[in-house]
């Protein structure tokens, strides 16, 4: 584990931003930090960045309690991000890289390399205010990773990027992981969570309500439902019902029927296929695994309903 957060609590006056949150982030992985707005994600990220400290609990980084030496090993791209508008791009990137502990020469060398890679060398002497928002985002990304941190924290990294740059950025993030970095990734875009994240933690109303590997979580939340496309149905709905199969919905288009089935009890996909095979020509068949979107919504809603009941 590169980062262990042990029972961290943080209060602002009467408001509890984090309540005994524990999270483990495995090394060399992409970790999704999810949760509705105002759940406490940003507070947690700020604690990891030592912008603020926890009231109780501890944060272990690389086996040691978090301390100022770790600042240069962490890169942070905040959601609310900006640059000094009147400063030149190059000067500013150098300044920010030096604040992370790089020497002037080393910072210049590495920045030049990144600027070449992103084909933005021409911007070096431009003022930030002359660049578009997307261009500024690229520079912010470069500045976040230039000191080659072991832990990277991206808060909504893709917002404000066009699809081409989203791709570019995603590839860079995957490459960073390949090169040994660990990435904490906070977003509301569940599709990118499914695509990128190995593990997630879900925070709601200052408490962690769910965590684990993405695949396991989705499987855990699967409801034994399947989708099948077929044509030439010759049986009757009654036969399905007898076999313990519920048809959740079905649609008919161009002679092809698409139906969703829910199996009860211990029945598996083979039972469904055995029942259906004599009556139809199957075109496709797959299990319906809930999307992270569904998991997110159903868990958060269930949790909120519980909280209301309790109070």
């Amino acid at each position: 584990m590169i980062l262990q957060i042990n029972s961290v609590t943080k209060k602002f006056g009467d408001f509890t931003a984090l309540n005994k949150v524990s999270i483990d982030v495995p090394e060399n992985s992409i970790f999704g930090l999810l949760g509705p707005n105002g759940a406490g994600k940003t507070t947690l990220i700020r604690i990891i960045n030592q912008i603020t400290g926890p009231d109780t609990g501890e944060v272990i980084f690389n086996g040691k309690p978090l301390n100022p030496d770790h600042i240069s090993m962490i890169g942070y791209l905040p959601e609310e991000r900006g640059l000094y508008k009147k400063m030149k791009v190059g000067e500013q990137a150098l300044y920010l890289a030096q604040l992370k502990g790089l020497s002037h020469n080393e910072a210049r060398k590495r920045l030049k390399k990144w600027f070449e890679k992103f084909e933005i060398e021409a911007w070096w002497d431009k003022k930030v205010e002359e660049l578009s928002k997307g261009m500024q985002q690229k520079i912010q990304f470069v500045v976040t990773v230039v000191h080659e941190p072991t832990l990277l924290i991206f808060d909504e990294p893709f917002s404000g990027f066009d699809p081409i740059n989203v791709n570019l950025l995603r590839d860079e993030i995957l490459e960073l992981r390949k090169n040994g970095s660990t990435i904490i990734f906070s977003t509301h875009n569940m599709a990118s969570v499914e695509e990128l994240c190995d593990n997630i933690a879900l925070i709601n109303k200052s408490e962690k309500i769910l965590d684990g590997p993405v695949n396991e979580i989705r499987r855990k939340y699967s409801t034994n439902s399947y989708q099948m496309q077929y044509r030439d149905f010759t049986g009757t709905p009654y036969q399905l019902h007898e076999a313990g199969i519920d048809v959740l919905n079905s649609s008919f288009d161009n002679g092809i029927c698409t139906a969703t089935f829910h199996l009860s009890g211990s029945k598996g996909p083979n039972d469904l296929l055995t029942t259906m095979l004599p009556h139809v020509n199957i075109i496709s068949f797959n299990e319906l695994i809930p999307s992270m979107n569904d998991v997110f919504i159903s868990t958060v809603n269930a949790e909120n309903a519980n909280l209301i009941l309790e109070s």
Partner: peptide, 18 residues
């Protein structure tokens, strides 16, 4: 105020103490 409205403040305080 400039640093705050520019939103650069969070980047900087992740490197140095406020």
């Amino acid at each position: 105020i400039e640093e705050k409205t520019n939103r650069i403040i969070e980047v900087i305080v992740s490197s140095v103490k406020p």
